[in-house]
Design a protein around this nucleic acid. Structure first.
Ligand SMILES: [Zn+2]
Ligand SMILES: [Zn+2]
Length: 673
DNA sequence: AGCACGCCGACT
DNA sequence: GTCGGCGTGCTC
């Protein structure tokens, strides 16, 4: 979805000696503040950091390029100019203003998220920053290798892109299965931009995926900079300084790199455009993928969205002509995608029904690797009391506590991260007959260890996130035989020796009550299939399910993306979901149950509406209690962002005026769960 | 009474 | 975001 344009601010300069400042702080309503410059003979250019008094504190902020609304009170002097030069160029101010307006988030916090953390403190930058800013850029020594020639499909896609990229702005959706050579095409597109004297920004959904793309970009431009997990904070700050100096031709980074101050930007690439990580962020909700489109649109430069499993929304935009479509059919070298089979879970208690164990064994025998996806971390997800049939849940949240065996035997809440000793009595009825039920990744790792003694098993989930990169590298280097993990195992990593993949607990993913649940499950299955047999022939993937007749699983088995998209889009049109409407999710919460109960008891306080256009709810939120707050959800749908904003304001004022209820929102939420 | 906690308004 | 002022409800 291309966000609709925002009316631009009236062009006027602040009065002589006055400065508009955006503090790195959440000041609702009037975020831009006016200060006096005690030394009006010195011009402080927009984007310069200044220290300003705010209440009884001194905070850092940016001199802003548009004036603040007039203020009648007494103006205060700025406390000081922090840096000798701007750190946030004015073209990016427009993007921050737009993002803050569109997502209804404080622009000060958005600007703060755009800069290395140390820049939001009211302190001057160390000499090392300005040294990195000015010092000659160092090329990493590397073997110069020839890039492989383009396939016919790659050349065709490149030519099509080159022809269309300067015509009326429209994002490009580049579709291509894993191994189809999307990265090779990114290289050629970047080369084209560089040859015209432009720079290139490449975004990845998570920091762990930066390294391979950075490597690919360094092959065409040795001065490419990455923002990656191997860097220390200081290194990242110095990388920012080099980018700010205007000499870095290519930047590869995660969501936060969206605001990289590249000069002469000529191309933006958003890899894995379907990934929900572009949206998620606690407290500050904006979509980096969509803002990247906006940044490109502002500059009139091409933006390329790449994925093997695009959002249904993107598919629709291609069919409606709003996006250009590019595609790379098939894998390079004609290698086939693995065959996918649906395996009934069976009645046994084993999480690995036949023929999964034999196929893992066969893969082991051939000296190849297997990947098993189980979207559930911990050891066992449920502690059930056989006497009163309650499950142990978090005292602060309405969710089950998950039993973890490592690093300690504890009951952990996945919503608030609090942990508790494993009880020996049921806290509800004091019964002793407690049962651990179900299987999560840690237990699966244990089961596999017993089943295949001698096999080297590596687990990858949020609990192993710290050394996740090392574990993954070890597996890639062949230091493991079976990789077990949550959805991280399906993300874009290249795992050459994998020839067998298994997806467990697909039913849970499909049954999740959200309009995007089936798209996520479908995408995850095909992404896992993309990991399998990438460099070796004859791979296969098994999907374990209680519901082998489920059409979504059938389409995944047949790689029938078009049928899936058609069905999904028909359903979304009928029920009024994106891309046929814009969404906002409003969460009402309170430490007391009563205000939420009362809000829920009111039926349709905002009126009756047709499915795709109106204010719906409140309904109990998921989970209905989180971190000691009771929660309800209101969903807003509307054909235009303006209407969604108006309705949000209506909902916000309705509940905030009654007090006791905290109102939070997400514009264009990735999902409603 | 004393205090922790959450809520609310102010901040140029 | 962060601070102070103020009310609620709990403990010493
Ligand atoms: Zn019980
Ligand atoms: Zn909890």
């Amino acid at each position: 979805m291309v966000p609709t344009p925002v009316p631009s601010d009236p062009p006027s300069l602040p009065e002589e000696g006055l400065l508009t400042v955006l503090p790195f702080d959440a000041i609702p309503e009037i975020p831009l503040l006016t200060y006096r410059n005690p030394d009006p003979s010195t011009w402080i250019p927009p984007g310069t950091r200044v220290a300003v008094p705010l209440g009884r504190r001194t905070v850092a902020g940016l001199v802003w390029s548009v004036p603040a609304p007039p203020f009648d009170g007494t103006l205060r002097d700025i406390a000081g100019v922090l840096d000798p030069a701007p750190v946030f160029p004015s073209p990016l101010h427009t993007l921050v203003s737009f993002g803050a307006w569109y997502y209804k988030i404080p622009p000060g916090l958005l600007a703060k998220s755009a800069l290395p953390p140390s820049l939001s403190l009211p302190k001057s930058l160390p000499a090392s920053f300005w040294k990195a800013y000015g010092a000659p850029l160092e090329e990493e020594k590397r073997e110069w290798t020839d890039l492989p020639p383009l396939s016919l499909a790659q050349s065709d896609a490149l030519r099509e892109w080159e022809e269309k990229r300067h015509h009326p702005f429209a994002p490009f959706l580049l579709r291509g299965v894993t191994g189809s050579g999307k990265t090779r095409l990114y290289q050629e597109m970047a080369k084209t931009a560089l040859s015209e004297g432009s720079s290139v920004l490449v975004l990845t959904p998570e920091i762990g995926l930066v390294a391979p793309l950075l490597e690919a970009m360094r092959a065409i431009s040795p001065l490419a900079e990455g923002i990656h997990s191997a860097q220390t904070k200081a290194e990242r700050t110095r990388a920012f300084a080099r980018i700010l100096s205007g000499r870095v031709p290519v930047v590869v980074g995660p969501r936060s790199a969206l605001f990289s101050p590249l000069s002469r930007l000529g191309l933006i690439i958003v890899d894995e455009e379907h990934d929900p990580s572009y949206q998620a962020y606690e407290g500050l909700s904006f979509n980096a993928r969509n803002l990247a489109i906006r940044r490109a649109q502002d500059l009139g430069i091409p933006v390329v969205l790449g994925s093997a499993t695009p959002l249904s929304d993107s598919i629709f935009h291609v069919s409606s002509g709003r996006y250009h479509g590019l595609s790379l059919p098939g894998r390079i070298g004609g290698r086939s995608l693995p065959a996918i089979h649906l395996i009934p879970s069976g009645s046994g208690s084993s999480p690995l029904p036949d023929p999964v164990p034999e196929r893992i064994a066969a893969s082991l025998d051939r000296g190849e690797q297997s990947v098993i996806l189980l979207n559930r971390r911990g050891y066992v997800p449920t502690l059930l009391c056989r006497s009163c049939h309650t499950t142990l849940s978090c005292p602060s949240c309405a969710v089950r506590l998950v039993f973890h065996k490592v690093p300690d035997r504890r009951m952990i809440c996945h919503s608030c991260a609090s942990s508790y000793a494993v009880p020996s009595l049921c806290p509800t009825c004091l019964g002793r007959d407690l049962e651990l039920r179900g299987t999560a990744t840690q237990k699966l790792e244990e089961i596999l260890g017993k089943h295949f003694p001698g096999a080297r098993i590596i687990r990858l989930d949020a609990d192993s996130a710290q050394d996740g990169q090392e574990r993954l590298a070890a597996f890639r280097e062949g230091e493991g035989d079976i990789l077990v993990g949550t959805q991280v195992v399906a993300k874009g990593h290249d795992l050459p020796k994998v020839t067998y993949g298994v997806v467990l607990e697909t039913d849970g993913m499909l049954a999740f009550p959200d309009y995007r649940a089936s798209e996520r499950a479908f995408g995850l299955i095909l992404q896992l299939a993309g990991r399998v047999g990438r460099h070796r022939e004859g791979g296969q993937v098994d999907i374990v399910t209680r519901d082998p007749d489920n059409p979504v699983l059938g389409w995944a088995r047949d790689y029938n993306q078009e049928a899936f998209y058609k069905e999904t889009l028909d359903e979304r049109r009928l029920l009024g979901y994106p891309p046929f409407t814009r969404l906002a999710s409003v969460i009402l919460s309170s430490t007391h149950e009563a205000p939420i109960r009362e809000a829920l008891a009111e039926r349709s306080p905002f009126g009756k509406f047709p499915a795709g256009n109106g204010i719906f709810g409140p309904v109990p939120a998921l989970p209905p209690k989180l971190k000691n707050r009771y929660r309800a959800q209101v969903v807003i749908k509307g054909p235009t962002i303006g209407l969604v904003h108006n309705r949000l304001e209506q909902v916000r004022s309705y509940y905030q005026s009654r007090g006791k209820i905290l109102v939070e929102w997400q514009i264009d939420p990735f999902d409603l769960g």
